[in-house]
Design a protein around this nucleic acid. Structure first.
Lengths: 215, 215
DNA sequence: GCAATATGGATAGTATCACTAGCCATAAAG
DNA sequence: CTTTATGGCTAGTGATACTATCCATATTGC
């Protein structure tokens, strides 16, 4: 297929596809003449992945490029690949590192208590510590107090997710699964959580008066 | 306190605070003379909330304004307040609505099967449907296939969260708790999930060879 | 009492980002 | 054999989140 069809099938405009080609997000098509190229289904899938990363995950183009590069890297070990993808997906600004020290200690304590095997420089540690620190600075430590419940829930999910990814037969797409699963999984969980919250709040508080806390 | 101290205590520059005042994100201080104003601790907390919404949740300033307005609205019923906050936090672009029809049917089916009481126009429905549709267009339906596990996990968490919010004595801060809990909770869950994934992947795949899928 | 600094309020400017427009020579389609 | 599409290029655009600067007035330090 040529660029026009790629555009129609992906819903991305031709100039934007050209832009992604220029930026190196999308590999060039195979040239059939000096100014004619052929694109394959892999281009279509990659393009959809790019759109998901930009639109749904809100990643800046430069970060998308890093993610895709780590995805195409020849590193064979699945575990390391997952680590690389996680690193590429991380927020990048090294977290404030100011008063987060206590929060970070708390995170490392949690990791140790659960016996989690985590590289000490995993970016999620900083993200988590920063989040906890902000929660505390806002006077809302309920959430952070219950870290264990969250860890329980998330550990169960991760078990299924990693198993599902590892069982994929097509080695080529494993890394892609990791990216998609991480990013879209996050969104899926977030949306489901909102729905669950609405349900529970309807059940616990929504019934008659509409205000259960007047006193 | 005056603007200088507010700036020092929040870590936000004076010009940026002025910008937030102009944009109506931060209510004006109390004027003590024609050009002198006094800010209270509520301003400091509000400012930290604004930063969390912009930096951590990545909300655009305009959306932050909406969220804060819904937060300050006098609507008394907690359940409705939660709904309003969820609506203000939603992605705003009405989801593509194209081939998402099947995915949306799937979501409504899930809601019905679990007996969830959800308003039919809840924005999370669209978000979830879109996410599922994208997952399928990327050929990764494992995640979506296991929706029930996610719903289970998330329902348990929501139960605690709503109960925690509802038990807060300070009615003034309940809505703020909803915002903070929704946004920072999401981030907390996401970070924890990455850590759990890394642990599980180390356990299942990381051991010796580093490549369990060579065959 | 008085110079140095800070403040509230305003207008205008900047940096970044994700595209988008336009041009050209050549290729494909009708 | 004309119309449309393509690949490759440079330059421009619109949105967003601040920054910079200015001014008249207040406060602060001495």
């Amino acid at each position: 297929m040529r660029i026009g069809e790629l555009s129609r099938r992906s819903g991305v405009s031709v100039p934007t596809i050209k832009f992604y080609l220029r930026e190196g997000l999308l590999p060039p098509g195979e040239l059939t003449s000096p100014n004619q190229a052929e694109y394959a289904d892999t281009h279509l899938r990659r393009l959809r992945l790019i759109r998901a990363l930009i639109e749904l995950a809100g990643l800046p183009v430069a970060r998308v490029k890093e993610v895709l590069e780590s995805l195409d890297a020849g590193d064979q070990a699945l575990h390391h690949r997952i680590g690389a993808v996680h690193r590429a997906l991380a927020p990048s600004w090294p977290p404030a590192e100011s008063a987060d020290a206590r929060a970070e200690a708390r995170v490392r304590e949690l990791i140790e208590k659960r016996g989690w095997m985590i590289e000490p420089d995993a970016p999620a540690i900083g993200t988590l510590a920063e989040t906890i620190a902000v929660l505390q600075s806002l006077g809302q430590d309920d959430l952070a107090a219950d870290l264990d419940s969250y860890a329980d829930a998330v550990e169960r999910l991760a078990e299924r997710e990693v198993a599902a990814v590892a069982s994929r037969p097509d080695a080529d797409r494993i890394a892609e699964s990791v990216v998609v699963g991480t990013i879209l999984g996050e969104r899926l969980i977030a949306a489901l959580r909102l729905l669950a919250q609405e349900h529970i709040s309807a059940r616990l508080l929504g019934s008659a008066s509409g205000d259960s806390r007047t006193e």
